[in-house]
């Protein structure tokens, strides 16, 4: 039986972890490598680094972090943030990471996902989707939005992609759209249809973050997670909103996610990964312990 995965995520800026100050027993609590080792010891199934370094000139720093981590930690490592082209992916894989997570660059050019999957294999291409609940707007307003999209995204007018902009609600009366730039920029793309399109273009996994729930600590957006999990046949990682272990359980059961990503509950030592897995196992969720 395939185990459901627990994936801690570290936000890394200029080579330093920006959360995680409460890892007080570490020699250097800001060093991603030290924190990666601590999660390794707790039995994390994978690790994700989200590189939030603003400047493209400092990209080399994350490569060094990946290199040092892969010398110490022997589990799958994913890196996301600022990946713009094939060369960025090649450099990360060469440094020792196993998968890359692509968000904005997929929105700017969905065919980039196909090129990346053809070059490196679907198994290392994760598409990150930041989704927000939206209420369908009147036709005139929608026409204005589509016009805005067409100006910005050259691919949006292509027949192949037009369906991504229909604003239909699902059977629960809900609709989600893709946002970028940390949830600030609307892209008017139906998030569920987008996930299915990403699979078709070669994504090997979807990292799905609810921008409504992110940081709220009130649980994943279960309806969103389930809608995307049901729409694709590749693994879905639930993200955004975990405040306690029950939330992880709900994401993996009602949400039908294959893996749960969380940052702060592990960073601030509210729970260890082992505690999370024991909780899940007691409730019948297959985990690796």
């Amino acid at each position: 039986m395939l185990a459901r995965r627990i994936i801690p995520c570290l936000d890394v800026k200029d080579g330093r972890v920006v959360k995680g100050v409460s890892f007080v027993n570490l020699r250097d609590a800001g060093d991603p490598v030290e924190i990666a080792k601590a999660y390794d010891a707790q039995g994390a199934d994978e690790l994700t680094f989200l590189d939030i370094t603003a400047s493209h000139e400092k990209r080399g720093i994350i490569l060094d972090v990946v290199k040092r981590t892969s010398e110490q930690v022997f589990m799958p490592l994913t890196v996301g943030g600022g990946i713009k082209n094939i060369d960025d992916i090649r450099a990360l894989l060469k440094a020792g990471c196993d998968k890359v997570s692509i968000n904005t660059s997929a929105v700017y050019d969905p065919r980039f996902i196909r090129a990346a999957a053809e070059r490196f294999g679907s198994q290392c291409i994760v598409v990150a989707i930041d989704a927000k609940r939206t209420v369908p707007v009147p036709d005139a307003e929608r026409a204005r939005q589509i016009e805005e999209v067409n100006q910005k995204l050259s691919w949006a007018k292509d027949e192949e992609f037009r369906h991504l902009f229909f604003q239909g609600v699902n059977k629960d009366g809900l609709h989600w759209e893709v946002f970028t730039h940390g949830g600030r920029k609307p892209q008017y793309i139906d998030a569920v249809a987008w996930a299915a399109k990403m699979e078709e273009l070669g994504a090997g996994e979807i990292l799905l973050t609810s921008m409504d729930q992110d940081g709220q600590k009130t649980g994943y957006d279960i309806e969103l997670t389930r809608a995307v999990s049901d729409a694709v046949s590749i693994p879905v990682i639930a993200s955004g909103g975990v405040g306690n272990l029950e939330h992880i359980y709900e994401g993996l059961t009602a949400g039908r996610a294959d893996a749960a990503l969380a940052a702060s509950i592990f960073h601030y030592k509210e729970y260890t990964i082992r505690e999370a897995k024991e909780y899940l196992r007691e409730r019948g969720v297959p985990v690796r312990l």
């Binding site: 039986m1 395939l2 185990a3 995965r5 199934d45 046949s233 693994p235």
Partner: peptide
């Protein structure tokens, strides 16, 4: 039962 492909993750 739906088995996702790729088979990705930890198994026995």
């Amino acid at each position: 039962q739906i088995y996702k492909i790729p088979h990705m993750g930890w198994n026995k």
